[in-house]
Design a protein around this nucleic acid. Structure first.
Length: 341
DNA sequence: AAAACGGGGCG
DNA sequence: CGCCCAGTTTT
């Protein structure tokens, strides 16, 4: 992994933010593009958020990108552009919590802080046969104490990465490769044949499902209307086709009419059937997204967002310049393919 | 302490 | 389809 071939705390920080809740294989191409465009904190800090989000598009948890952008400004403003070397300064950076602070400090500066992520919790709970619910903070505290005790204080960064890699490659959630594990002999869960049910995690609530209807409004030049989401909202700062959640007793066409009237103050005609239907899963709910073509009625001239966010008329070929959430990006791809025909 | 917050991969 | 992932912030 490229971030292993550097001692630059900035690059290690970028990699660790990208790896939050994200697999190495998924983050890798983003890391390459991102660090090429932003080789240091100053270049990131002086960029516009729109471009940062465009580079982040598809990686998810977009608050990471917004927070990282703010943190880069912190590094420039408060640390003269060079990445802080003090633990308290590092964890004060926006978007840097206990995990990322420990990871960056140990890997970049040899600082003896144990990393406790999902991998470490799995490895240690099996090693010590910890049956407690790993959703509980008390369990995580207990595991952190054990991790601190095990930590190789001469090489904390190497140790932390080694435990995480063991969890990612050998001590996996399902069907761990215990026959290849260097810790097999000292693993209590292995000896008790309990690797299948340790770590224990209490059941998650299941995710509700929503139907979302959006309208693609086109003008005489085939430009399309998009709007930007507020920065403090879900998918904040990304662009989308205006629309919203279907209410009980409402047809999807009525949803489009109501949402566009509420959000943009316009009245529209909506085609009878959607030109695209997309299913998508978010972390805490799932949606079916129905995309309709819509047309402004004669009286509605200049749509403006009621929430004060910008809206834009965009030609199909320009849609690629804007950051869209995954489900909306599928709509833009469909629209561009129409144009190609 | 619990909820909010994306998207992809896997069995 | 449910679970998991190199977590942090907000409530």
């Amino acid at each position: 992994m490229p971030w292993r071939n550097t001692s630059d705390p900035y690059l290690i920080w970028i990699s660790e933010i990208m790896l939050q809740q994200t697999r190495v294989d998924q983050a890798l191409p983003y890391y390459e593009r991102f660090t090429k465009r932003y080789p240091d904190a100053a270049s990131l800090a002086s960029s516009g958020l729109d471009e940062v989000l465009r580079l982040w598009e598809g990686l998810g948890y977009y608050s990471r990108a917004r927070n990282m952008h703010k943190a880069a400004k912190q590094i420039v403003d408060e640390h003269d552009g060079s990445f802080p070397t003090d633990y308290q300064d590092v964890i004060s950076l926006r978007g840097v919590g206990p995990y990322t602070a420990a990871a960056v400090m140990s890997i970049a500066f040899n600082y003896p802080a144990p990393v406790v992520d999902g991998n470490v919790m799995r490895v240690i709970s099996r090693l010590y046969h910890i049956e407690d619910d790993i959703r509980l903070q008390s369990t995580r505290d207990r595991i952190e104490i054990l991790a601190a005790d095990l930590l190789d204080r001469a090489r904390p960064g190497t140790f932390n990465q080694a435990v995480m890699e063991l969890g990612a490659t050998i001590c996996t959630p399902r069907s761990p490769a215990c026959h290849d594990c260097p810790l097999q002999n000292s693993c209590q869960a292995y000896h008790r044949n309990r690797t299948g049910d340790i770590p224990y995690k209490s059941p998650a609530k299941k995710r509700p499902h929503h139907h979302i209807a959006v309208g693609v409004i086109r003008d005489a030049n085939n430009r399309m209307l998009i709007s930007r989401r507020p920065e403090n909202a879900m998918l904040g700062g990304l662009w989308e086709f205006p629309g919203g959640k279907q209410e009980p007793g409402e047809s999807l066409r009525e949803t489009v009419k109501r949402e566009l009237n509420e959000e943009l103050g316009v009245r529209v005609m909506v085609e009878k059937k959607p030109f695209e239907v997309i299913r998508h899963a978010y972390s805490h709910f799932t949606i079916t997204l129905h995309a309709f073509f819509a047309e402004l009625d004669g009286l509605s001239e200049n749509p403006e967002a009621r929430n004060g966010e910008p809206v834009k008329w965009v030609a199909p070929g320009e849609l690629v310049r804007f950051a869209f959430p995954k489900a909306n990006r599928k709509i833009t791809e469909k629209l561009v393919s129409y144009r190609a025909k």
